[in-house]
Design a protein around this nucleic acid. Sequence first.
DNA 1: CCAGGCGGGTGGTCCGACCACTTTGAGTGA
DNA 2: TCACTCAAAGTGGTCGGACCACCCGCCTGG
Lengths: 233, 233
Amino acid sequence: MDDAAPRKGTVTQRAVEEIKAMIAEGRLEPGQRLPTERDLAVQLGMSRSSTREAIRALTVMGVLDARHGSGIYVGALEAGDLLETFGVVADLSRGPRLVELLEVRRVLESAAAALAAARITDERLAAVEAHLAAMNATDDPEEILSHDLAFHREIASAAGNATMAAILDGLSSRTFRARVRRGRQEQDAIARTRREHAAIHRALAARDPEAARAAAAAHVGEVEEWLRGRVEG
Amino acid sequence: MDDAAPRKGTVTQRAVEEIKAMIAEGRLEPGQRLPTERDLAVQLGMSRSSTREAIRALTVMGVLDARHGSGIYVGALEAGDLLETFGVVADLSRGPRLVELLEVRRVLESAAAALAAARITDERLAAVEAHLAAMNATDDPEEILSHDLAFHREIASAAGNATMAAILDGLSSRTFRARVRRGRQEQDAIARTRREHAAIHRALAARDPEAARAAAAAHVGEVEEWLRGRVEG
DNA sequence: CCAGGCGGGTGGTCCGACCACTTTGAGTGA
DNA sequence: TCACTCAAAGTGGTCGGACCACCCGCCTGG
């Protein structure tokens, strides 16, 4: 007989748990190829449709990687893939939750800045500086935003914690930033952003973790306070 | 003609983006019911199977809520539902990424403790104290763990940031904690945990944010350091 | 030996049917 | 009149099969 544990909500849900278990227990290694959908369906004792839905669910989470015509593979299980959902959260959040997300970001961003100040290499510091310069050299909002994001991404990477960097990346997703910024057309906003970025860079260059933490917290906190006022007002 | 935007990878992926857009643009409000799968399939110009896969994907992310026999509804879009993925990440992570996750948790947990110290009410403080007492009153590891989790959950809630609490909940998921603890059978581990929890509680009772931050950081950091040693060793 | 094509196998999509569950309201009995 | 029952309609859940689009490796012909 099989293991005969047919309970557990829907059939698809069971399939998801089953596959997750295979990976968690190490029966499936990252990069390894899974049986075909058809075989998997037989193994799990369900139809291909249900199996497919389970695979789709895991694919969305970044756990699996389905390649058309080739097969299904276990994802790299890297932070970036797994936490992609985080960007969706940011996209769909509004009102008070936006403030909460920004508060989380402030906490993590300042921690990352402090770590980066202690660990950053000269090469990475140069990259940070390059994005800062590029951001100051143009007036195209789109380009500014692009370098703004890259600036923060570089710092997060320098912190040496890929997971933290991935979370911050999701929290700073393009649409999120764009939406927050949309209503902030005050002319001094850009100038203030430039000043704050410069302060962060100085702290990094000085290898001063506490200064970096404070500068990063102030940078995010400034936006946070502004948004808080708009939401509660 | 239709809107004629057939690009975008797979059909299912397009459906996911389409539905996400409906919600992001406010065409669908939380709690509202969506058209039936069959109607939705017609609207999107695709088969019911593909539509279902898209719905499934969004359901897994917590964006939608499909109720058998009733209909499909837009989820509450609350932090807890949306960030369930964090639990999956914690479950599937191992090796260096576990350390990274713990580092993220340390940062957030200490921030939450500091916030909680400033904001916690007497009722919540009593609840924290109750879990602390219950944890000290038993030797059943399972029960200890249960109150341990509740202890931290209560503090995270008291911090007043539901999103942060949800993330911490995912990072502290049962299997995650159990797995870390599995190898820590040293007898003094439990005693140490109790001491650390007591220190956190004292800081909360004193409404001292900095002490709470330090105590929480030390608590998580202790586990973190131990795990770091095991991974790198 | 190499280049090209061609076929088998894979995931992607579609269809139609049926099952399981929830909801609703008409009917029935007290 | 009211409350309860239960049956029918509508919904998501599952199934099986068919076909399409794509990848890859073998095999053929040069």
